[in-house]
Write a protein that binds this DNA or RNA. Structure first.
Length: 507
RNA sequence: ACGCCAAUAGUCUAGCGGUAGGACUUCAGCCUUCCAAGCUGGGAACCCGGGUUCAAAUCCCGGUUGGCGUACCA
């Protein structure tokens, strides 16, 4: 494989310019863990801020919480995460079938093998010459398929704990207090942003599949009888979204189906308004951070693909160099989690509606992967010309740095004035960067490479007539304007209130 | 997780038994009145552990990390 992957180019810039690097690199690293560097941290924070603004702060009935990443065993016993994957499994090397190791052993020896270590199970299989129950092939080594990181809580190891494999459980187990806080009215939503952990068998593809990953999630609680009464649905009714239905997948699809959310619900393509509402919000957010709308769609997952708790998933898939990757999970979790936790903790999670009806809310969960979205932005904004120079065409909404200030020369007081302007831009709240070394063209190139949308150059006219030049990354065009107008101009350009061309005519 | 392949400055790479060379980046200085290629100088590397050998970056074994394939992905 000598052909360079597109991803390798992205990784190379990430390492060189401080976006992302492997964790514990100097000690050989740890697979599936990554650290965000200086620029990566700025950009990641902007993505999170955008989500927080449009998914949480803009809503009246949604609040964000911050839960512990380590939770006691009982939580996952109830949620189903433990039971589904706690068993040591053996795989047949010939027919690839999976079996529970203890059941295979019991089938041959008649003795229970529960609770034995992997080594003990392997020894029993070897000692008893146990082969594959279905094809008689050789069995591979026993593996533990629980993908949760386990640890002990307390110095004496009183109870087991696990790093959460999804952020959602914090919200379900706090349901009573949260419902009380929301005055027991439906619908309401609880948001959370934070890390989750899965001890993946083989992490691959950089940020796409790590062992620690961040999720931006909402658990939206609603009355299933009112699943088509989302209070703000009318605001997104006209937004077009890309859909891939189950029928389309069976027939083999080329182009996603474009429908307004309203039409999608009316025609039964999307099961309810709550789901549709969030598909619209996600579409708007991804477009705003530089991902072209034709490059992603919502795929109705087949039954066997959906998680154990889901009655249907419409996952957002992006067309990446690696293929179609799931970037956002949209799950109809029904009342699965609340019922499970109610039973296991002997709690009541029913709410009494104004008409006296008792309701265990259903849940819709949009779960956005921070790292996956981050990587998608990098791929979709990456540009390269015939000379091999590269840059990121980040929209200002996610650009890790927003403006760079350069003195045309270091001498004659230009550097001092440029530094002053840079400080003022920072005071005004912009992510500004000062660079006075080397030649001006080199500095533009350095700024382009990390996707700074605007460069401000201080030249001799700045001293003579108090003007500066703004240079647009995407067109390399320049406009000259008075220093006193700079802050407002940068702001208007970033917000899209002013067009670079228009500005040119005005000045 | 299994199989095959790989690992040299910040990045990309040359060397493949006698302790490392380049390019770009970076830093200091010179030059420079707007788009990375001028000049001088300086930094900076053989993934980790064991073995073979007089001698290992180089050969062998194990580990780690990465790629590809298969598997897995709640």
């Amino acid at each position: 494989m000598s052909e360079e992957r597109f991803m390798d180019k992205i990784i190379e810039v990430c390492l060189r310019r401080g976006f992302v690097s492997p964790t514990a690199e100097i000690y050989g690293g740890a697979g599936g863990f990554y650290d965000y560097g200086p620029l990566g941290t700025l950009m990641r924070q902007k993505i999170i801020d955008l989500w927080r603004q449009s998914f949480v702060l803009d809503e009246d009935d949604i609040y964000e919480i911050t839960g512990s990443t380590l939770l006691p065993e009982a939580v996952f016993k109830a949620s189903g995460h433990l039971d589904s994957f706690d068993d040591p499994l053996v795989q047949c090397e010939k027919c690839k079938s999976m079996f529970k190791a203890d059941e295979v052993i019991k089938g041959v020896t008649g003795k229970s093998a529960e609770g034995l270590s992997l080594e003990e199970l392997d020894k029993l299989i070897a000692d008893n010459n146990i082969n594959c129950p279905s094809c008689e092939g050789t069995l591979a080594k026993t593996r533990d398929f629980n993908l949760m990181f386990k640890t002990e809580i307390g110095s004496t190891g009183g109870i087991n704990g696990y790093l959460r494999p999804e952020t959602a459980q914090n919200i379900f187990i706090n349901f009573k207090r949260l419902a009380n806080f929301m005055r027991n009215k439906l619908p309401f939503g609880v948001a959370q942003m934070g890390s989750s952990f899965r001890n993946e068998i083989s992490p691959r593809n950089f940020l796409i599949r790590g062992r620690e990953f961040e999720q931006m999630e909402i658990e939206m609680f609603y009355d299933q009888d009112k699943e088509n009464e989302h209070p703000r649905f009318h605001e997104v009714a006209d937004i077009e979204i890309n859909l891939v239905t189950r029928e389309m997948q069976e027939k083999g699809w080329k182009e996603p189906l474009k429908l307004t959310t309203e039409a999608a619900v009316d025609e039964g393509v999307i099961p309810n308004q709550y789901l549709a509402y969030y598909l619209a919000l996600e579409t708007e957010m991804l477009k705003a951070i530089g991902i072209p709308e034709d490059d992603f769609w919502f795929r109705h997952m087949q039954d066997h693909e959906a998680p154990h708790y889901s009655a249907g998933n419409f996952d957002l898939e992006a067309d990446l160099s690696l293929g179609h990757m799931e970037i956002v999970g949209n799950a109809l979790r029904t009342d699965y989690d609340l019922q499970k936790h109610a039973k296991a903790s002997k709690s009541t999670f029913e709410l009494t509606m104004p008409d006296g009806k008792k309701v265990v809310p259903h849940v819709f969960e949009p779960s956005l992967g921070v790292g996956r979205i981050f990587y998608t932005v990098l791929e979709k904004c990456y540009r390269e010309d015939e000379r091999g120079w590269t840059w990121f065409q980040f929209p200002p909404t996610v650009a890790p740095l927003e403006v760079a200030v350069f003195p045309l020369m270091k001498k004659d007081g230009l550097a001092e004035l440029a530094q002053e302007i840079h400080n003022e831009l920072k005071d005004a709240g912009y992510l500004s960067f000062y660079d006075g070394s080397g030649k001006i063209g080199k500095r533009y190139a350095r700024a382009d490479e990390i996707g700074i949308p605007y460069c401000v150059t201080v030249d001799y006219d700045s001293i003579k007539e108090f003007s500066v030049t703004i240079r647009d990354r995407d067109t390399m065009k320049q406009i000259k304007l008075p220093i006193e107008d700079l802050e407002i101009a940068i702001g208007e350009l970033m917000d899209g209130e002013a067009d670079f061309e228009e500005f040119n005519q005005e000045s």
